[in-house]
Design a protein around this nucleic acid. Sequence first.
DNA 1: TACGTGATCACG
DNA 2: GTGATCACGTAA
Length: 193
Amino acid sequence: MQSDFYCGTDVVKIARSLLGKFLVTKLDGYLTSGIIVETEAYSWCERGCHAYQGRKTARNNVMFEQGGVSYVYLCYGMYELFNVVTNREGVAEAVLIRALEPIDGQSIMLARCNTSKINRITSGPGKLTRAMGISRMENGINLTANKIWIEDRGLKVKRSEIAASARIGLNSKYSDSALPWRFVVNGNLWVRK
DNA sequence: TACGTGATCACG
DNA sequence: GTGATCACGTAA
């Protein structure tokens, strides 16, 4: 996608429109890709976001850059989570990529995950980054360049095929955790159940 | 349901 | 410095 796609001011809309797009990486010399089938939106204006109320830290500072860069951080000491930063510079918003349907480079993904079963290898935000070779080394990189990018290959996901629900893993004591900002392709095999 | 795992951040 | 918390995944 071009830079202007990521600079949109409605992160929820962008999270929805990413469904059906292809996330592609060319890392360690290998090309891998998958269809995005689950996303979540995050915005500075709600409590689920690392940049809530515009709080800027060493970890989240790339969220404040102009849309079109990656935000990769370590979660629970073990998992690297990949986000697409959106909106204009200074407005911290991002979309977490939560699940993919693997397409290109499946044998590479299997090797990276040290398994022989493709089943569920990219069905979760911590798992898909491993399969795609994404780590914190890729934090802040330009998504219109040649390491990680997103392609529209013409696959259409109709509005009626998209389900919205509350985001996963947020502390339920905050009302923002109930916002319906998680989007999945209905019935897709690669969305965790 | 329980917990490994370690970086992060709000405290002081 | 310290300690609670955390956008997960797996086992059970």
